[in-house]
Design a protein around this nucleic acid. Structure first.
Length: 666
DNA sequence: GACTAACGTTTTTTT
DNA sequence: AACGTTAGTC
């Protein structure tokens, strides 16, 4: 084959998938069945048969997955062609569509993207405005309801609770007034744009002749509708997924999309990848025996290619402290006895809160580790602030970032002034910035506040002019601006420890660095901001660059694999999570455990505790109900006492001999 | 408007 | 236990 890659190493099903390029294709790819390899080969094949790269669209679940996929395809067919393809998430794709056409939907093209934090901030204000100070409704709860109806394609007044519904409407008006959209709006508006404007739709259908969607089990109803708008006859669309790994139902994901794919795209070629190359028979048997208990699956069998293997261990621990210490100590000893690098080990947990004890134990045992997920780099306050400033310098009429940084650092423009400015801007249908520049507004303020606003406006205009002139790189202008307004000083003063201060300064430095490379590569500031808003990736996000054992949530572990895996906290209320029991979504928790189990290649250990410390209080635990469902053919059920009992006696023996030696010497 | 002290709340998972 | 929010003070 010409392109420097061949299909020789693929099995029959994989080869069929790679060779079937026309019409709708549904690839059901169980865990560890070489899905990524198959998909990348399939796309490489499209390029090989002469389909131009710019006509290919591949949608992934995360930006990181997108970068990886592009990389791998680049390795097969050359970097240049890989870079001409569109590989991105649904959300990034929507930004791309909307930057060009959102004006047709009544928004201005320079719309801002609200992240979670922005949304919560806006909603909190609205709750106070509409319900009073003592209103105890939680912003997150209302937003969850809003998100749910948006993703279901329902109008906002479909929310049952009247107060919630009125907040939802107010929230949407607020976004609209600030020319901002949230994550759901990106999908909603892009779908609307394609549906209502035939010329736009036809344009993109001609651009994206072949569409591939990865992790299809995690798409929601809205994304499915978007896909339908995007793909016209003869439906050259390929979706890849595994309904057993659908773990984002709480975000609106509908495994219905995969179960009823043929309803949307008739008569698809259905290809099953069932041969597992990742895990031992013992691990796969354990996984299969668990997932059997879910109803309404696309029945499939994961067939092991590695017979036998070590039995899966299930260990009962006294408490979460012992659980963490046990794992830390065992990693330490396995590293020595089995000559494994730290990177071979992963500890998977249900909630981020469980990581603290594990981190402490690993630190104590001096096991290097890397935390994946947790607080996103882009969610850190200083990062959000700096990005807000950058957005202001790009376009000061953006209300959301302006209100964010209006008084950070304090410059005499407080809450009251902010409220007055937003009220004025709402009445006049202008941005807050324009209110600031309007003498009719500044005229009603005290001399002191007016002066503060005028100074601020002047500072921003000065820096903006410098950015627009493009003689000095944007990162340098921003850097100088932050120092001029005293942002870094202020931030540093607010830090309690020197370490905290170092961390925050470093984060800002890293961001400016990122901006610098982005600008050098010819990206606009706007594009940089868009990418940042949608980036889930952390700091030096490349997992491979960091060394150490991996600490990760089960959700974030999807798509990864490790030779040695620990699944902790198999307790009722933790996994399955208490809330899933209340809401009757235990099936999803079962899939989550299934995902966790199938991350393991060689050695799997699951643990549960008798008690767990929660909010500084010791709480009793009962083992997870899932434990009963697991077949014990390859299972070794022990407890901490048994294992430690043996080791303690060894230690005691050592002590005994040590004392004897001392005695003899004396 | 800014700073401090006590208070209450929290922990599902993420684009 | 740790964080963010709120009330009270300067």
């Amino acid at each position: 084959m010409a392109g420097g890659f061949s299909f020789d190493s693929l099995n029959r099903a994989q080869r069929e998938a790679v060779g079937t390029l026309d019409g709708p294709v549904l690839i059901l790819a169980g865990a560890g069945t070489g899905k990524t390899r198959t998909v990348t080969c399939r796309i490489a094949n499209m390029l090989e048969v002469g389909i131009p790269p710019e006509n290919l669209l591949a949608v992934t679940f995360t930006n990181k997955a997108a970068a990886e996929m592009r990389e791998r395809i680049g390795g097969m067919v050359g970097k240049k062609r890989a870079e001409q393809m569109t590989v991105c998430t649904f959300h990034s794709l929507c930004v791309r569509l909307l930057r060009g056409g959102i004006d047709r939907l009544g928004y201005k093209a320079n719309f801002s993207i609200c992240t979670q934090g922005d949304q919560v901030g806006i909603m909190k204000q609205l709750i106070v405005r509409k319900g009073g100070k003592d209103e105890k409704v939680k912003a997150e709860e209302v937003l969850a309801a809003v998100s749910k109806v948006k993703n279901a394609g329902l109008p906002l007044d479909a929310i049952r609770d009247d107060f919630f519904a009125s907040l939802a409407v107010a929230y949407q008006n607020e976004l609209r007034a600030r020319n901002a959209v949230d994550f759901d709006d990106l999908l909603l508006l892009a779908e609307k744009l394609l549906r209502e404007h035939a010329d736009v739709r036809e344009h993109f259908r001609k651009v994206y002749l072949r569409v591939t969607v990865d992790e299809f089990q995690d798409t929601n109803g809205l994304q499915m509708q978007l896909l339908q708008q995007l793909v016209g006859k003869p439906y050259h669309v390929c979706v890849v997924g595994d309904d057993d790994q659908s773990i984002y139902g709480w975000r609106g994901a509908e495994s219905k999309n995969i179960l009823e794919f043929e309803r949307f795209f008739p008569d698809p070629e259905v290809i099953r990848l069932e041969e597992n190359y990742r895990s031992t028979e013992a691990i796969l048997h354990t996984a299969n025996s668990l997932i059997r208990h879910n109803a309404g699956r696309r029945e499939k069998m994961l067939r092991p290619t590695m017979a036998g293997g070590e039995p899966v261990r299930l260990i009962g621990m006294p408490g979460d402290e012992e659980e963490a210490e046990f794992i830390a100590e065992e990693i330490l000893s396995l590293k020595a006895t089995e000559k494994r690098p730290w990177e071979d080990f992963a500890v998977l947990f249900r909630t981020n809160g469980q990581s603290r004890k594990l981190e402490e134990a690993l630190r104590k045992s001096q096991v290097p580790y890397r935390m994946v997920g947790a607080q996103s780099f882009y969610d850190r306050r200083e990062i959000k602030d700096v990005l807000a400033y950058l957005e202001i310098l790009d376009d000061p009429r953006a209300d959301v970032p302006l209100l964010r940084i209006l008084n950070s650092p304090p410059r005499g423009i407080g809450q009251n002034t902010a409220v007055m400015a937003t009220d004025f801007s709402r009445e006049r249908q202008v941005s807050v910035w324009e209110a600031f520049c309007d003498p009719e507004f500044t005229g009603i303020l005290s001399n002191k506040v007016r002066g503060a606003i005028e100074d601020f406006v002047a500072q921003v205009l000065m820096a903006k002019a410098s950015i627009d002139a493009r003689t000095i790189p944007a990162n340098q202008v921003l850097h100088a601006f932050l120092d001029e307004i005293g942002y870094r000083d202020w931030l540093e003063r607010g830090c309690k420890t020197p370490e905290e201060s170092d961390q925050r300064m470093e984060a800002i430095h890293d961001l400016l660095e990122e901006l610098s490379t982005a600008v050098q590569r010819g990206k606009t500031v706007r594009k940089f901001l868009d990418d940042s808003a949608l980036a889930s990736d952390r700091e030096d996000d490349d997992l491979d660059k960091k060394q150490g054992a991996t600490l990760i949530t089960m959700h974030a572990s999807k798509g990864l694999e490790f030779p040695v895996v620990y699944l902790v906290g198999l307790e009722e209320g933790v996994l399955p999570h208490r809330r899933s029991i209340e809401e009757g979504t235990k099936d999803e928790e079962r899939r989550l455990l299934y995902v966790g189990i199938t991350r393991a290649q060689k050695k799997l250990t699951m643990t549960y505790c008798q008690y767990r410390t929660k909010w500084g209080q010791r709480m009793g635990c009962t083992p997870s109900s899932f434990i009963r469902e697991i077949d014990d053919k390859h299972l070794l059920h022990t407890c901490w006492d048994d294992i430690m009992g043996a080791e303690v006696s060894d230690d005691e023996l050592d002590d005994f001999f040590g004392e004897m030696e001392d005695f003899l010497k004396s």
